[in-house]
């Protein structure tokens, strides 16, 4: 075996700087995807046929094609479609939000349907308007139940974000490649990148558990 971890030591700060970029993409895409997911989920349970149809088609398409293809379409296709070259960062956030919105909408839909029907009836009997009922009564209860699934989606998003390295964004993954190229050793920087991803995911898991505990206060 020809391994020498000391040789990449000077490059570690450079790779670590990728954390910021990865986190920016994940957090932005996560938040936008979550907001989008709620909207699409509400469309799915709506009684308006057109909205239902649209949201089902949306989910089907974004789940049915590879994320890396969606990213490439938005990034490389933008000059033809919009007439200008979209920034890599914007392309990454856009494709990841659109994609995770599809997955999150399914999670939220299931969460809403799992809330006891009596909750809706109790709210209706009190004359609470639909929007308020959804926002204050149904969604908070749905969120509590779907938190583990939601956390899982954010973890997936964090790991999948590594594919933005294909459109020249210098995230953790890309930086590991670059260091590997300079030194003619790929194993060490890639292992280091893997370690960073693992720590990120573990941190997310811990945060998720803490939030879950907080939300279970009422049990």
């Amino acid at each position: 075996m020809n391994l020498d971890f000391t040789s990449i030591l000077p490059s570690l700060p450079y790779i670590l700087k990728g954390i910021g970029i990865t986190l920016q993409i994940v957090l932005l895409a996560g938040l936008l995807g979550f907001a989008l997911g709620i909207i699409i989920a509400l469309f799915k349970i709506s009684s308006v046929k057109l909205l239902k149809w649209f949201s089902d088609a949306y989910t089907s398409i974004f789940r049915g094609t590879p994320l890396i293809l969606q990213l490439a379409l938005i990034y490389y296709g933008s000059p033809q479609i919009f007439g200008f070259q979209i920034e890599p960062f914007a392309a990454a956030v856009l494709s990841f939000s659109l994609n995770s919105g599809a997955y999150i909408s399914e999670i939220i839909r299931a969460g809403i349907l799992a809330v006891d029907k009596g909750q809706r009836e109790a709210a209706m009997a009190l004359g609470i308007p639909y929007k308020r009922m959804m926002w204050d009564i149904i969604l908070p209860q749905a969120m509590k139940n779907i938190l583990p699934a939601l956390m899982n989606e954010f973890i997936t998003l964090t790991k999948e974000s590594a594919i933005v390295s294909t459109i020249a964004i210098t995230d953790i993954m890309r930086r590991a490649y670059i260091v590997g190229g300079h030194q003619y050793r790929f194993f060490e920087p890639l292992i280091f990148a893997g370690l960073i991803y693992y720590v990120l995911v573990m941190t997310l898991t811990l945060i998720g558990k803490a939030v879950e505990r907080r939300m279970r206060r009422s049990d």
């Binding site: 909750q119 109790a122 009997a125 004359g127 908070p140 209860q141 009422s218």
Partner: peptide, 29 residues
């Protein structure tokens, strides 16, 4: 909605809002 606001209903299975305290259940509407 307006009519329902003036008609109170009590259910067999209570249907209290589980994420709200007893007082919050009363004060929300």
């Amino acid at each position: 909605m307006k009519i329902r606001q003036d008609v109170g209903m009590v259910f067999q299975h209570f249907h209290l809002f589980p994420h709200k305290t007893a007082l919050e259940n009363l004060t929300y509407a």
